[in-house]
Amino acid sequence: MNAAKRMIPLIIAWIVLLILFRMKVPAFLARDNMIDLVQQISVNAIIACGMTYCILIGGIDLSVGAVLALVGTVTVSVLSIGNPTDQSILRLALAICAGLGVAALFGLFNGFCAAKTKMPPFIITLGSMLVARGLALRINETPIRVPAQDDLFLAIGNARIGGIVPVPVIIMLVLLALGAVLLHRTRFGQHLYAIGGNREAARFTGIAVGRAELIVYILCAVLTGVAGMIHASQLYSAEPNSGQGFELNAIAAAVVGGTSFTGGVGTIPGMLLGAVIIGTLDKGLNQAGVHFSLQYILKGLVILAAVYMDVRRKRQA
């Protein structure tokens, strides 16, 4: 397939990165280190899945970082209402529903504005980003600790199945598999490609463009909500200031993975590879002891190089 062929240079680039970091950090390719790497990627990859849908239809969602913080705050707040001393499945379910519900509301708002008003998604989600961040800070200005007895919630981000495979990685793989089926196998996915490729033509073909757009933004927000719970669980607390810049990492993963900013082009496997490359870069540079200022510079250059190569290849085709 064409899409698979386009991933080959990215896979080569990733292997080159692995070799370089292995030369600098002898234990880089060790099993535990690799498992850590995948675990660290999972939050970004889950968000980037929704982001890929948004970019694919010619939109964007800048609010994901702030929604992630808000979802964490809401979820942990519900968990700790009345300072409980026991663990209750009911309360946990309620907390998760509250968190995902808030996320869905933001998605609904973003999607409604994108579909029904002429406001550009960049501006809509810039606004909702600020609203979400403000709401998170209103609920609590300081981090809220996850009640220590809530093993199940803490397991979401920290447990390992069989002592090896982290739960977030499982969640990520399940969601990405579903996300890939949705995009690459369903009618809905087909419609997203049509909308991104030519919005007017999609409309003239009888596709309910507005409805699809609404669903995309809700999906993106709900996926972000799941990521927000994993993130809060990993931090053992909900931090209203967390998630800053997560939207940029998600956009980077989607774009490095071959999603076109003009819409209509992009895949979930490609996005995952993009997330893996960004994650490898983050971890490798850290472990190699590169100063954080230089990390930013290198990451920026890698993103530019990846997108430049992709654009050039497209022009040749």
């Binding site: 009618r187 087909q190 419609h191 049509a194 030519n198 033509a201 003239f204 209509g264 082009v265």
Partner: peptide, 24 residues
């Protein structure tokens, strides 16, 4: 501008209106 998704394949464009039938 209004009819075809030019960046896609011929098959994509031909099958698009009938997704309900080949992908129910």
């Amino acid at each position: 501008g209004q009819g075809l998704v030019m960046i896609q394949t011929i098959a994509f464009n031909l099958a698009l209106p009938w997704a309900k039938e080949w992908n129910p």
